[in-house]
Design a protein around this nucleic acid. Structure first.
Lengths: 331, 331
DNA sequence: CTGAAAGCGCTAACAT
DNA sequence: ATGTTAGCGCTTTCAG
């Protein structure tokens, strides 16, 4: 029966009373045990265990200015790209004893801004995935709070970029090697950083390899958009198609099937981001996205920035590879 | 140029100095403006705006014991079931001015427990989705912290359950109506609450409708498990199959295709949870899961519990419907 | 209607 | 090696 007038959770005071030491000692037993005798540390730890003590982060935050929390904000958590990335980030944060706030901006820059401001004091830093805010707002926040961007390239701010160019180029080379002459690129939203990158990579590699490429717009990067693009791909007489992402590729597979074409016998298909795993039939050849690494690395970078505020403006580009599965075959 | 010696964010003190009132007044201007003259409230708000003031949640938490945060913990955020649910929860929390912590337990009960304890003081309540912890631990936490369960049925603790039974029964009825006589049920992990529920519903409805049903184990609830189950479904001479969830159904589609069977001409397939949307070809007939509502409602319930601690032990069961798309056809 | 003062749980000098 | 003190930013009595 601990001597505690407390209604709520046990505090360092309760432990101090129980053990018969000062509250500072209890604090030190957790924060800087090397300053205490082994014996007292042990006693304090035992008492803490017995009382079911967990440090009050809010109080610690107030005192140290270090909340021990991080936040990650995405435009849409329901996008297949996000969850593995978030998961990796959560794991990384957790392994450093940090908790993670999740924000979903719903693609709305204003919401994103408010969300972030509300979180500033509760966190030590942010990871923003494909932020929708204008450069100016991002810089404004970055000035007062450690910040790492994923898939947004603003010089002066630390960022990790998933560079799909190498993978996409490899995809084109792969198609050339298996004798395709004319391919289609089914694009995504033209404003997107990734779309520009991918389209450019296709063009460059196709020129180099002597392929001709037909550009098909899909605009929305949805399954249906991909499905509807199938007829355009056929009309273009392409024997292979590279899609903006896996979802579009998946739709394309369906559309092709629907029109009576067989993949990969009649036509080859390649996706991007590799978010579907092998969960299509036939298993989709795709460009790996390394979003898991991106999530983990962003957190690690953020933690470094927090420890060493002089480090900022690091730019990491993760290159990508082609993962060949079953939707590509020789013409 | 505000008169602030502060390195960090502006505080109520800064505002107080600027306006020439006491810190209490500034505090009240936000928390209880009705206690102040309209005029001072206006002046304070304006100054706050100018300084870019955002209240320090940690400090408020320390003082009031109400951190203004909630947490949601899932076994695996990468599971297709989670993201829409989390998104809905995030939105609901946000609309009440609350921020949301995200925890991913990685299916590990011990991790889940530590995670939660670390979050207790920083949050006003938890939503646990398909918790992996034993009843005892859950109850232990529920005693000291407001808690709402999703898809876990423990009496004495508030919970929202997605009851797939009605939808699954409707699926069986639907198959009976279109003249199927023998169907297969491709099950999931037998420990799961959902699996027991679904299997039971299939059995009951089949008896009632005079269908015979063959139980095929898949065990892991993965795309591959579904694909491999295809041959067993064929071997059972079933003309239709109901799968544990959409992912298994999707795999089944692939497996059937691979074996040369056409869906729905040769065999009908029905999924559960409706997480794939229409993103399969043919578009999958499925049992709606209402996880979005579940996420939103869990947060609302939690908020109610926090306001009115006497309310606990509410049990909400969301019923489900069959969504008929293109993978079912008359035998 | 507004100010003064105390305190939430913890950490960090500064003693000893 | 440990105790004492002050203070982090905010809310909340209690006085005016």
């Amino acid at each position: 029966m601990p001597i505690s007038k407390n209604k709520g959770a046990p505090t360092i005071g309760d432990i101090a009373d129980l053990v018969g030491v000062s509250r500072s000692s209890v604090s030190r037993a957790f924060g800087k045990p090397e300053l205490l005798s082994e014996d007292t540390v042990k006693k304090i730890r035992k008492a803490a265990e017995k009382l079911g003590y967990f440090p009050n982060q809010a109080a610690r935050a107030l005192s140290t200015g270090r909340p021990g929390n991080l936040a990650i904000v995405v435009p849409d958590i329901a996008n297949a790209f996000s969850p593995p990335l978030i998961r990796a980030a959560q794991l990384a944060a957790d392994s450093h004893g940090m908790s993670l706030f999740l924000g979903d901006s719903g693609e709305d820059p204003a919401r994103e801004f408010t969300l972030l401001n509300r979180l500033v004091v509760q966190t030590e830093g942010f990871v923003l995935v494909s932020s929708r805010m204008p450069d100016k707002k991002i810089k404004e926040i970055a000035e007062k709070h450690p910040l790492v961007l994923i898939n947004r390239d603003i010089s002066g701010i630390s960022r990790v970029l998933i560079d799909t160019s190498p993978g996409v180029e490899a995809a084109v080379v792969h198609l050339a090697e298996i004798k395709h002459k004319k391919i289609a690129y089914v694009g995504g939203p033209s404003v997107s950083w990734s779309e520009q990158q991918r389209r450019g990579a296709v063009r460059r590699a196709a020129e180099r390899e002597g392929l001709t490429v037909e550009y098909v717009r899909s605009g929305h990067a949805t399954f249906d958009a991909g499905r509807e693009a199938a007829s355009a791909v056929i009309a273009a007489k392409a024997s292979a198609a590279i899609a903006f992402d896996d979802v579009v590729a998946h739709g394309l597979l369906a559309g092709l099937n629907e029109l009576g074409y067989r993949v990969p016998q009649d036509i080859s298909v390649i996706g991007c981001d590799d978010v579907l795993g092998a969960a299509t039939y036939p298993a989709l050849t795709s460009v790996s996205a390394r979003h898991i690494e991106a999530g983990r690395m962003a957190i690690e970078m953020l933690l470094n920035m927090i420890e060493e505020p002089t480090i900022s403006n690091v730019r990491i580009a993760l290159d990508t590879k082609l993962v060949v599965r079953a939707t590509t075959a020789p013409r």
